[in-house]
C-alpha cells in the first residue's frame, strides 16, 4: 500500500501521459480503491482537485464505465457472467444458487456482499465465470456455490449429507 496521499499519487499517474486528462480514469480507479470500492462525493472532489477538472466531469466519466461504482458496495463483490457462453453452461442456475445461498437478489448489496450479473468477462470456454472481487473463478457450477459462499464467509464447509458431529 502506497504511503503517498491520493493527490500525490494522482500527480505520479498524471506524469505518465502527454495530456493530463488521460489520467482521469486511473485516478478514479485509485480513488475508488481507497474509498472502499465505490466513489462517494468526496472522491470526485479529490480527483477533480488533483487534475484541475470539475467533479461533474469526473462523474460523467465514472457513470459511463461499468466498473466504477456510484453506490456503496459490499465487502465481497460477486459477479456472475450471464452472457451467451456462460448461459449455455448453466450461468442462471449458478446465479440462482448464489441468490439462495446469500439470501439476496441479483443487484442487491449488503455490508457483506454485493451480488450482480455482468456482461462477458472473457472466459467463455471455461464457463461459468464468476468474479469474486475481480478475481475470476472458472468452471463454476451451481453445486459449487455453497462451498464458495462458505469460503467467503470464512466458515468451514460441510457436505450437506454429512451428519453433524
Amino acid at each position: 500500500m502506497s504511503t503517498l496521499s491520493l493527490y500525490d499519487e494522482i500527480q505520479e499517474i498524471r506524469a505518465r501521459y502527454p495530456e493530463s486528462l488521460s489520467a482521469v480514469m486511473p485516478a478514479l480507479q485509485l480513488a475508488q480503491e481507497r474509498s472502499g470500492g465505490w466513489l462517494p462525493e468526496q472522491a470526485f472532489r479529490d480527483v477533480a482537485d488533483a487534475l484541475d477538472l470539475t467533479p461533474a466531469y469526473c462523474l460523467s466519466i465514472a457513470s459511463f464505465y461499468d466498473m466504477f461504482r456510484l453506490e456503496p458496495i459490499g465487502e465481497t463483490v460477486i459477479e456472475v457472467c450471464t452472457n451467451i457462453s456462460c448461459g449455455l453452461k448453466g450461468a442462471q442456475q449458478v446465479l440462482e444458487a448464489f441468490e439462495s445461498e446469500l439470501g439476496l437478489k441479483a443487484g442487491d448489496t449488503t455490508d457483506e456482499f454485493t451480488l450482480r450479473t455482468v456482461e462477458c468477462l472473457g472466459g467463455c470456454g471455461w464457463a461459468t465465470i464468476v468474479a469474486v472481487n475481480n478475481r475470476h473463478r472458472l468452471h463454476v457450477q451451481a453445486g459449487d456455490v455453497p462451498r464458495i459462499v462458505a469460503e467467503l464467509r470464512g466458515s468451514e464447509w460441510k457436505e450437506p449429507d454429512e451428519p453433524d458431529a
Partner: peptide, 26 residues
C-alpha cells in the same frame, strides 16, 4: 431451453445497502 430466463445486467435491479444514503452529488 438452456438460456431460459437468463438474467442480463440490463434487466437487473439495483438495491442499496440498508441504512446507507447516497451522497448529494449522485
Amino acid at each position: 431451453s438452456s438460456l431460459d430466463h437468463l438474467l442480463a445486467p440490463v434487466a437487473m435491479h439495483i438495491a442499496l445497502p440498508e441504512g446507507k444514503a447516497i451522497d448529494g452529488l449522485i
